[in-house]
């Protein structure tokens, strides 16, 4: 694998029942940058992201073929324990889904599962990660309270802390701001920009402005296909030259697509 590439998707096809959801997807995701997967609802971007985490395994009707290389390991065709692979990736979903337990245990969950159970160690790690997610000051006096009592914005930051706690290399975020108010959204975006120093971030969104604000690298999807990908600057400001045919085809789709995003 080339240097600086964290995730490499090759010829990925995914069928959900009779639907061909992902069609020959080839994507390169650079290390320690924010890669935004952009596209209208239902274009397969969330599915692509879940495939990177092998979360598609839990749906018996899903069939996947192709390769996804993470650190040179083909995670779709590997003998390695899938739970260890998943720990390398923190997941942030559209709406926060705190686990049905208190705030402390939400963050401790992943640590305990990987065998780290000492109370003093956990206390320290939990403070560290809650601080990292800018949540510590708000919850330090109520760690034993149920996580569902927190506001949505706080819950999303808790989910971020929970994901960071298992010490991942990659953060997968699926429209993580779509259920949040503007201020909480901004907080999450700023956090991502800060986090990219140490983590590879894959962000799924349908909001063009959000992509423009924080993306380093952009993958454009439409109806299950990757239409265009590359550095954000090139995609947004200097669309590269291509053969006549493709330009015509791509432009019409891209224009449609932009219109769609702006309308949203």
């Amino acid at each position: 694998m080339e240097k600086g590439v964290k995730i490499l998707v090759r010829d990925l096809n995914l069928h959900f029942g009779k639907n061909h959801v992902l069609k020959n997807v080839n994507v390169t995701i650079p290390e320690k940058k924010i890669t935004v997967i952009l596209g209208p609802s239902g274009c397969g971007k969330t599915t692509l992201m879940k495939t990177m985490n092998r979360l598609t395994d839990i749906y018996p009707d899903v069939k996947v073929s192709g390769n996804i290389f993470i650190n040179d390991e083909d995670i779709l065709n590997t003998q390695q324990d899938i739970t260890i692979l998943r720990q390398k990736m923190g997941l942030l979903s559209q709406r926060p889904y705190p686990l049905p337990m208190n705030i402390y245990n939400n963050v401790a969950y992943g640590l305990r599962i990987s065998g780290r159970r000492k109370k003093r160690y956990l206390d320290k790690r939990i403070e560290h990660y809650l601080t990292m997610a800018n949540l510590w000051d708000e919850v330090k006096d109520r760690l034993k309270e149920s996580a569902s009592r927190l506001s949505i914005g706080q819950q999303q930051r808790l989910c971020l802390a929970r994901g960071l706690a298992v010490d991942p290399e990659i953060i997968l975020a699926d429209e993580p701001t779509s259920a949040l108010d503007p201020i909480s959204s901004q907080a999450i975006e700023e956090k991502f920009v800060e986090l990219k120093k140490n983590y590879t971030i894959v962000l799924v969104t349908h909001i063009l402005r959000q992509a423009k604000r924080i993306a380093d690298h952009v993958v454009f999807m439409y109806l299950g296909e990757v239409i265009e990908q590359g550095p954000a600057d090139q995609i947004f400001n200097h669309p590269r030259k291509r053969s006549q045919n493709r330009i015509l085809k791509d432009c019409s789709i891209s224009i449609l697509h932009f219109a769609f995003c702006i309308l949203q």
Partner: peptide, 20 residues
């Protein structure tokens, strides 16, 4: 999504069912 959250934290399927 709740099961996915637990799985993505490294829990096995049975751990997810038992704990979440």
């Amino acid at each position: 999504e709740l099961k996915e959250a637990s799985l993505s934290l490294g829990a096995s399927k049975w751990q997810t069912i038992k704990l979440v």
